[in-house]
Design a protein around this nucleic acid. Structure first.
Lengths: 104, 104
DNA sequence: TTGTTAGTTCGCAAATATATGAACTATGAA
DNA sequence: TTCATAGTTCATATATTTGCGAACTAACAA
């Protein structure tokens, strides 16, 4: 496995943080485990979209999925995900304070 | 500024980590300041692509840019960027160890 | 069975992001 | 001025992601 391949894998996992809905999911789940329905209730929007975001995050190893009866429960695969996410939020806050252009 | 807007801004800044070349840039620059040319030499590829990646990262507040003579120097706007990036790499490594599907 | 609930998958249009050569700009040197 | 170097911007083709309704599946209940 050469460097470029690692960068691709690394970027792929980071992409999981690159969408508002997925950030909101990470923020919502944090250290709980929540069912699809609970997450949907908190976040809103069409269920098909949410399901796709959740399953792409699970495929990338950001979330783990567990089915129990009719419900599917999701949680973060590692607290590190929440930590990295929080740190990036701090970068955002710093930028806003510095009045840097933070949009786009 | 409501929550959804924050999630959008947060996701926008996280998107900066979502591309192999941009991860490589963060990895390369770390705590140095480097000129465009030095970065290009390390990373390769067409200079127009690199320039676009660098300037999108600067626009998002991930990098800062400084021009001196003919050269443009880039550095991380905050060490937090490198930290978050490293943590996400650890998540990747954990997943690889767990034999999780980490591709895609 | 038949129905119901919870969630996933499909299909595909619309939106974004990426790649890259060519043209351009800014700075400094001869 | 004229030239060279360092980097950016433009144009545009291609690829990837997203959004979302409709159809589908799995589990359980009556």
């Amino acid at each position: 496995m050469d460097n470029k391949e690692i960068y691709i894998l690394h970027a792929n996992i980071c992409k999981a943080l690159g969408h508002a809905t997925r950030i909101e999911i990470i923020d919502t789940i944090q250290d709980n485990e929540m069912s699809f329905g609970q997450i949907l209730e908190k976040i809103g929007g069409p269920k098909s979209s949410l399901s796709q975001h959740l399953s792409s995050m699970a495929t990338k190893g950001i979330l783990t999925q567990r089915k129990e009866g009719l419900n599917v429960y999701y949680k973060l695969s590692s607290e590190k995900v929440a930590i990295a996410c929080r740190i990036m939020r701090e970068v955002l806050i710093e930028n806003i304070k510095k009045h840097q252009r933070f949009i786009n």
